[in-house]
Design a protein around this nucleic acid. Structure first.
Lengths: 346, 346
DNA sequence: CTGAAAGCGCTTACAG
DNA sequence: CTGAAAGCGCTTACAG
């Protein structure tokens, strides 16, 4: 059995109240008593149960993060952003990956109840509204890159639509007319927004030309498969826009294996600006999804909501998604002569 | 205020004991009572406090992971390994990054007390023995890639020394005689083991030739700096062995920027086999540190220790670190004619 | 089958 | 300054 405050009290010959006060640095304890108590604490190697403490103080100093996955650079960056902000505020982190399964997500949320002061939720698959049934009404929560229906919780999202639109515009400006798009998972909110941005841009900027969508699922492997499909096409596009960097990198491998040079033979772009993207060869043109910042901002907002319950009303903030031009995009080998509408003013 | 079991009992007109039984699926409740109770539970949107539950059941179904950092592909892979194994066992994950600071690590550990059933600890900087003062004696714990002094806790470690040795042997077999080594942080256990492996191999395989150690700190930036130093040398080594992949990738950028081709002008190797390493160009020769597996194994062992306290004695297991040869290493431009001792039998 | 009561390990008014 | 007691939200023998 682990040592409890009672053991300390007994050995020290004082009440548990006194031990508690000594431990928590309250002033109403004699220096002498305090020293004695702390001696026993050290001797017994007593360390208080944070669980019991937070049961009574109603503060866990912990936030829960429900993410669809923990794997890969995207989530690594996100967790980093959350962690940095959390540690700056003295908050601990309970992470959980739901893997897109609603039942698992619900279980994870229930398990967090009573163990966290608030929740950070990224739920691109599961409708967030469903989630609130698994958590008390008054638990502060902030959503990240998640479809927002109700207005109760604050949310942060990157401008996926605008970022995808800007990327297509960039490719069009470089002279591309046949731009393939590698989509993310079908029911994924962010994937859908990026697809919408692509479609809108094609419709606006290349009127009369058609879309070209390949199905992917945000994994490197699916990007590789998409790349292989592109290689096999008789009427090959001059540019591939993969809707995240992981797929772009997988695609790059497939193109390279087939002997195609990027960007000479075919242009390639991604989305997210994960750290690797500048280290692959050629470095990857992409859209900065400001992942770390997103995590940090969400945590800051959550911390505020925890500190001042009810004080802050829900806010929905959209982060700009900037185009990052690197080596992987360039003019196509055979520039088109189609007329190009001027891009809309920024 | 959040709804409690008392609220449910009151509204349902039964005792809290009955609510508890209905909730936990005990058999000794009438179907009718159960349904009625569950109806109220749903109506009040009651979700039990996991904290209170675990206070009494003495099971949190949560494990804590104390890691030096959460950032980058290495930790992403490690967390993934832990997470996969944990979710397979129905365990949740409380993560904490200590950033190498002993005081922060201690605080993190104290905060975990009472909230976890066991601990996974990677502490390359802080002596693990120091840590045990911040946690009850009987809390199960498993160490990963950490210097082991006492024998109380099980540990898993990759064969850093052997892996580094094997890499040097590979480079020597490819004809390299001047092999620079980019070291990790000075007080880091794994960094030191890898350095020892390099030194032992140089002494064994290239007798009379000297070591060439550049200081790094496991970050990409430090690898870039080391690469810049190498470029500036009048007597440039024919191969660079960076002691982790992140530094190798940074180094690659520096070499490329200086107009050096890898592997034609200079060979380059890393350590860890993080996922990117096969996607950089040229793909990176490295040593597989089996990160995901390490995390999974450590969690399995911890879970066993939790299930059967005292039943399992401490075990120390070392994982093989295999050489992964890719494109970034090749024969040097001017092969040496020095005699080469045959490599020791595998 | 159901309820009253004790207890998990703490903290904090309330007395003294 | 110190202690006895109540209570945080639950679960589980123990009675009935």
């Amino acid at each position: 059995m682990a040592t409890t405050i009672k053991d300390v009290a007994r050995v020290a010959g004082v009440s548990v109240a006194t031990v508690s006060r000594a431990l928590n640095g309250h002033t109403n304890v004699t220096a002498q008593t305090r020293e004695h108590v702390m001696g026993v604490v050290a001797q017994l190697r007593f360390v208080p149960s944070s669980a019991a403490q937070s049961m009574i103080t109603r503060r866990t100093h912990t936030v829960g993060a429900l993410l669809p996955d923990l794997h890969g650079e995207y989530f690594s960056e996100l967790i980093r952003g959350i962690d940095l902000a959390a540690r700056a505020r003295g908050l601990h982190l309970l992470v959980s990956s739901s893997h897109g399964d609603a039942v698992e997500a619900a279980a994870a949320l229930r398990a967090m109840n009573g163990r966290v002061d608030g929740l950070l939720v990224m739920s691109p698959h599961v409708n967030a509204d469903f989630l609130w049934g698994n958590v008390p009404d008054d638990l502060p929560a902030v959503l990240m890159n998640t479809r927002v229906a109700g207005g109760k919780h604050s949310s942060f999202a990157v401008d996926n639509l605008g970022g995808a639109y800007a990327m297509v515009r960039h490719l069009v400006e470089r002279g591309h007319r046949d731009i393939a798009f590698v989509a993310g998972p079908e029911s994924n909110f962010e994937a859908n927004e990026r697809l919408r941005g692509y479609r809108a841009a094609i419709a606006d900027l290349l009127p009369g030309l058609s879309e070209h969508v390949l199905q992917g699922d945000f994994t490197q492997e699916s990007g590789f498969r998409a790349g292989s499909q592109v290689v096999a096409l008789t009427d090959r596009p001059s540019a591939v826009f993969a809707s995240n960097d992981a797929m772009a990198i997988g695609c790059l491998s497939a193109l390279n294996e087939a002997g195609l040079q990027v960007p000479q033979d075919i242009a390639l772009a991604g989305f997210d600006d994960i750290p690797i993207s500048r280290y692959v060869n050629p470095s990857l043109t992409t859209v900065r999804a400001r992942i770390t910042e997103l995590g940090g901002l969400a945590l800051e907002r959550l911390a505020s909501a925890i500190e001042e319950p009810g004080r802050i009303s829900a806010q929905h903030q959209t982060l700009r998604a900037d185009l990052i031009v690197r080596q992987s995009t360039a003019a196509p080998s055979s520039p088109s002569t189609l007329p190009l509408r001027p891009p809309p003013a920024a």
